[in-house]
Amino acid sequence: MSLSHGFVRGETLSCIYHGWSYGQAGNCLRIPAHPGLTPPDAIRTVTHPVTEADGVVWVAVDEPTAAPPGLAGLVPLRSLTAFADIAAIEAAAGVKATADGLVNAGDIRLLLSSTRDGETLIHVLVSADAGPAARIAAARIAEGLRRKAEDIYKKGAAR
């Protein structure tokens, strides 16, 4: 059972199935079926290093070798999933990602992360001084870009 279906109370994350709860180090703190039992240290879940910078949450699969890239002047707007790979999204934007992984698509900037084959999570960033109207416009631009990228990907996959 994936812990993402679970619940957070205080500083512990609990599984929805049997309520086993885990602390920040990944160790099991409590097994509700056996309230008197101190869970053995071997019962633990995998943890990953995580940090927050400029409003974006970053996670590393292993120990990160560098800090996340700076996003000066940008703020996160929304995240959306595309049925397309990173190359198709770059093609739709007409530009490749920079060394920092940022795609400059005109009014919006994108951070891309591949979730599985043919599926990409897109984090949309906008200028920090954009007002509500500009931000709503940017949210819609992202929809159009996704449509285009999925089109490109579908045609590419069909070939």
Partner: peptide, 16 residues
């Protein structure tokens, strides 16, 4: 499912 986080961690009853 119930949002169990809306309730505080209970003091568990134990017979052990």
């Amino acid at each position: 499912h119930r949002l169990h986080e809306l309730k505080p961690e209970p003091q568990l009853e134990t017979g052990e």
